[in-house]
Amino acid sequence: MAGKTVWIVDGAYLYSYGKGRPNGVDYLKLKNELEAATGEAIYESYYLNSTPDPATDAWDGFHTWLKSAPPRGPKMRVQLYKLKDLHLKCPRCENHFDRRVQKGVDVGIATLIIRLAVQGVYDRLILTAGDGDFEDAISYIKSGLHKEFWLNGAQNSLSADLQSYADHVLWLDGMVPAIDK
């Protein structure tokens, strides 16, 4: 299918994958690999994640780099959400634990997938994420709007539910070392 391609990245998912690599993942190199796989330039790219408030200088620098155009950066639109505090109690030991977790990122990704499809911004979506929670949004753009769906992720963390909708699965594992920093 010819047309415009949009790439949407779940930042926490790709960060988690990159932590398992010696130097992490280079988003510009990954974008180049995705463009080579599709045979065309990516029309728009989006990065969604949560960030601490206030963000650190390192995170601010990374997000600025993501927005930078090639050859310097991957030219992505960055949408950041706040972290929320989750208070947990261990049922066995009665200890209390606090943990910071994402708030709103998955809903933001699902909304973006549908909004851009309905607006006719893309004919093909590449989603770098592994979460099966996106299944309803993907099902709608595939069956209701007849969009092409390509899935990008790691073999050990990619939802089978999402794989079942994919026109193509682009395995991160098969792109190494081309996407390494």
Rank of each mutant, 00 (worst) to 15 (best):
A2K: 13
T5C: 14
I8L: 12
I8W: 08
V9L: 08
G11N: 02
G11K: 03
G11T: 02
Y13G: 02
Y13W: 09
L14K: 00
L14I: 14
Y15T: 04
Y15D: 00
Y17E: 07
Y17C: 03
G18M: 04
G18Y: 06
K19T: 10
G20F: 11
G20E: 13
V25P: 02
V25G: 01
D26Y: 12
Y27E: 09
K29G: 03
E33S: 05
E35D: 06
T38G: 08
A41L: 13
A41W: 14
A41T: 14
I42D: 01
I42E: 00
Y43S: 01
Y46K: 07
Y46E: 03
Y46V: 01
Y47A: 05
L48Q: 04
N49G: 05
P54T: 07
A55C: 12
T56Y: 09
D57C: 07
D57Y: 09
W59T: 09
W59L: 15
D60G: 09
G61I: 09
G61Q: 13
F62M: 10
F62D: 02
F62T: 06
H63W: 13
H63Y: 15
H63S: 11
L66I: 08
K67M: 15
S68P: 03
P71C: 14
P71V: 12
P74A: 08
Y81P: 07
Y81G: 03
K82Q: 14
K82Y: 12
L83F: 12
L86C: 11
H87N: 12
C90H: 09
P91K: 07
C93G: 04
D98G: 11
R99D: 08
V101Q: 01
V101F: 00
Q102R: 00
G104H: 08
G108E: 03
A110I: 04
A110V: 04
L112E: 02
L112C: 04
I114A: 05
I114K: 07
R115N: 15
R115T: 13
L116N: 06
A117L: 04
V118K: 13
V118R: 12
G120P: 02
V121D: 03
I126L: 13
L127W: 09
L127A: 01
D131F: 05
D131S: 02
E135Q: 13
D136M: 11
D136K: 12
S139A: 08
Y140F: 15
I141P: 02
I141V: 09
E148L: 11
E148Q: 13
E148Y: 07
N152P: 04
A154E: 04
Q155M: 14
Q155A: 13
N156G: 12
N156Q: 15
S157M: 13
S164F: 06
Y165I: 02
A166I: 10
D167M: 04
L170A: 07
W171Q: 10
W171N: 08
W171E: 03
L172G: 00
L172I: 05
D173V: 08
G174W: 12
M175L: 15
A178G: 05
D180V: 12
K181R: 14
